[in-house]
Design a protein around this nucleic acid. Structure first.
Lengths: 234, 234
DNA sequence: CGTATTATTGACTCCATTCAAAGATAGTGG
DNA sequence: CCACTATCTTTGAATGGAGTCAATAATACG
């Protein structure tokens, strides 16, 4: 892997990613230690479960999935990661990654090296604050996933589409049309559904004029109605 | 609420709680700002969803639950918290708590005030490290819960009992006999099961000689067999 | 163009829920 | 201390949502 120096200073993701909320001089400070890594292809591992923790990573372009293995040899897709989102927190607790990260498509990422973290915490206090903020956000996201995991299949899929749409919007992509870099299998795995159920429900959503599906392309036609599925009926 | 000064220096939980991994002088440093709050009773709120974030809390005695509300007016029990465990991370991202914390029984807790955190991060670098470690642990726990949420009812309940037993053990309590401070309703809520299913499965576990249940008292008779339920059959 | 992967659709099955009713436990006040 | 009540727990029977199995269709890829 190449380790080109990279600049957070002129990165288009500066308002979403690590430097969010930092002053110009602070950004320039972290910019000195943040490294860019070479491009990965779909299926490539960013890190594997058990790998030594090397730092907090940030998606620069493309997308990735976080996967955990259970005792039964099954993979579980814990999260989908979009540009500007941080990953690697699963390695914070004991220097070893607790799950794996895999590219979902051609992608690039940056790295805040572990060895410079303690020094940065001293020199750039807002970075500490910001990292805790990111880590708090991850936990709230996990919380939502846990709550949703107890809801029926239809709601889980609706929530998945809505949250994806909103996260894409915040990153300057279209919120109403996007390509899923996931197979039905992977969507089902992530949501705890059989792939056939995902297929059936996407069709149902289309029949109800909520979305248009064409293979992995999704067009959201009626976001409000989709959101209504998450609300009580009355 | 009273705000008695408290000492982490002679707390029996020092190897589990916040001061874990800190030097004597560092512990004495954080000890100066950590406050103890008065005793709460079952059902009392430690904090409510939406409350301003006041700091990271630590259970000193007793236990608590973290609950989130969904759009349907239902409560979801996200986590059970035992002595020495930290809570409040749900308030890190935007200064407001994303869920509520409620006492499960008579309990006490300590608080690391938010206003002293940034200063501590500067003066006690290992505290920053330690807090990230705790936060990483929480995320791995959430990961396990997400993975388990896709497994059948029997495995979920087995995992719940095992993990409770292990956490109690690390805290110096009996790992084989303990009182659940939760109703069947609450266990079911936490695991995404109907209370009747919890009741039936506890009975089944007892019939299989894995445990003895007497109301809310649980005695684990065969931990290995219980753990086998989480392993592949072959 | 042919092969492998992915997606759709239908029929059947089953795990866990819901509904219902009875039984146990704990807490309260007379 | 016991009766009374509210809450919690157990157990049975019926239902249903989503999974599994299976076969076909569409798409991507070398």
């Amino acid at each position: 892997m190449s380790q080109n120096p990279v600049s957070c200073e002129n990165c288009s993701l500066d308002n979403i990613c690590l430097p969010r909320g930092l002053s110009q001089s602070e950004i320039s400070n972290i910019s000195k230690v943040v490294k860019a890594r070479k491009t990965l292809q779909r299926g490539d591992f960013i890190y594997r479960e058990g790998d030594r923790f090397n730092g907090i990573l940030a998606i620069k372009s493309g997308s990735a999935k976080l996967i955990a293995n259970d005792n039964h040899g099954n993979e579980h897709i814990l999260n989908i990661l979009l540009p500007g989102e941080l990953l690697g927190f699963d390695g914070l607790s004991n220097e070893k990654h607790g799950c794996a990260a895999v590219a979902l498509e051609t992608m690039t990422f940056c790295i805040l090296p572990a060895e410079s973290m303690s020094q940065l915490f001293q020199n750039v206090p807002s970075l500490t604050r910001e990292l805790f903020r990111h880590s708090g956000e991850k936990m709230l996201e996990d919380k939502n996933q846990l709550v949703m995991s107890k809801r029926p299949a239809e709601e889980r899929l609706a929530y998945f589409l809505i949250s994806l749409s909103e996260r894409l919007k915040r990153r300057g992509f279209s919120s109403s049309e996007f390509k899923l870099s996931l197979t039905r299998q992977e969507i089902g795995n992530h949501l705890g559904l059989a792939l056939e159920t995902v297929s059936r429900l996407l069709k149902k959503f289309q029949d109800d004029d909520l979305i248009v599906v064409q293979n992995r392309f999704i067009q959201i036609k009626n976001l409000d109605l989709l959101k209504n599925m998450l609300q009580p009926e009355d």
